[in-house]
């Protein structure tokens, strides 16, 4: 069967592991299957290796063992077709380019035609209308994150990899961004991976939450989030939501205890 090129891809990680040059183990061998069109959140304590896992899926980091297949092909092939986008924790906007310039850069890096009207539309979609010509230094932290998301979406990726995209802003702005932006890619049916250490954000945005242990990363829990979409801020007060958040917290606590026990045994 030939997969439809426009359909979102599935991601399969087999025995995926990373050990740094100094011998530091970042990710233990991990098997994961991410279904097409689903949003999966990676949750774990800071520095546990979940970002490394994401970077291996993105093809930005070479695994020490195992492999990643995106739609049955290695990430390098998806990269060549510019079939995925990464949004980084730091918005990584080029300071000398305007919001429009940064979005257009992504398009030209991806060898896609630059259509002024559709860039304008995208800028409006992330709530930055009127700021197309502003440079990053003129924007607030939240506005920069919006611009970075707009850039990631500009190439209409089938696979979207978000590395704590709302990490560098205050809590209120973070909630606002988590309200506004995910609707855009949810509507497109993109396969999405979200790395975060906010448990409520993970539950609010995902179809599935994978909880990792402290470093080296190891899957501790795989929790399906069966809440109806679209979700709103009010849904966070539902008992079902609270129960799922509780499940994720319990898994995180279990992971920390596991590591402490391992340390005590040494």
């Amino acid at each position: 069967m030939v997969p439809d090129p426009a359909a979102p891809p599935g991601v399969v990680c087999t025995g995926l592991a990373k050990t740094w040059a100094g011998g530091l183990v970042a990710v233990r061998p991990t098997d994961l299957v991410l279904k097409p069109g689903q949003t999966t959140a990676f949750v774990g304590p800071s520095g546990c290796g979940k970002s490394t896992l994401l970077r291996m899926i993105a093809g930005l980091e070479q695994p020490s063992a195992g492999h990643v297949l995106i739609d049955g092909k290695p990430p390098a092939e998806t990269l060549r077709k510019a079939g995925l986008s990464v949004a980084f924790q730091d918005p990584s906007l080029l300071p000398w380019r305007s919001v429009r310039g940064n979005i257009e850069l992504a398009l030209s890096l991806a060898r896609r035609p630059v259509n002024r009207a559709s860039v304008d539309q995208l800028i409006a979609l992330v709530g930055l209308q009127g700021f197309a010509e502003a440079r990053p230094a003129e924007l607030s932290g939240g506005m920069r994150q919006r611009a970075a998301i707009a850039r990631a979406l500009a190439t209409e990726p089938q696979l979207l990899l978000l590395d704590e995209p709302f990490g560098a802003v205050d809590e209120l702005t973070r909630q606002q961004l988590a309200q506004d932006l995910p609707r855009i890619w949810e509507a497109r049916g993109t396969t999405t991976v979200l790395v975060t250490h906010s448990v409520t954000e993970a539950v609010m945005l995902s179809d599935r939450v994978i909880v990792f242990s402290p470093r080296p990363a190891e899957v501790i829990a795989d929790i399906a989030i069966d809440l109806a979409r679209p979700r709103s801020a009010q849904d966070a007060r539902q008992p079902r939501f609270a129960a799922l958040v509780e499940d994720v917290f319990a898994a995180l606590t279990r992971g920390a205890a596991l590591r402490d026990a391992a340390l005590a045994a040494q």
Binding site: S85, V86, A106, L109
Partner: peptide, 14 residues
């Protein structure tokens, strides 16, 4: 330049 700018370029396969 910070390394994430280079990651950005690589993430589009360049």
């Amino acid at each position: 330049a910070p390394s994430s700018w280079f990651d950005l370029v690589r993430s589009y396969g360049r």
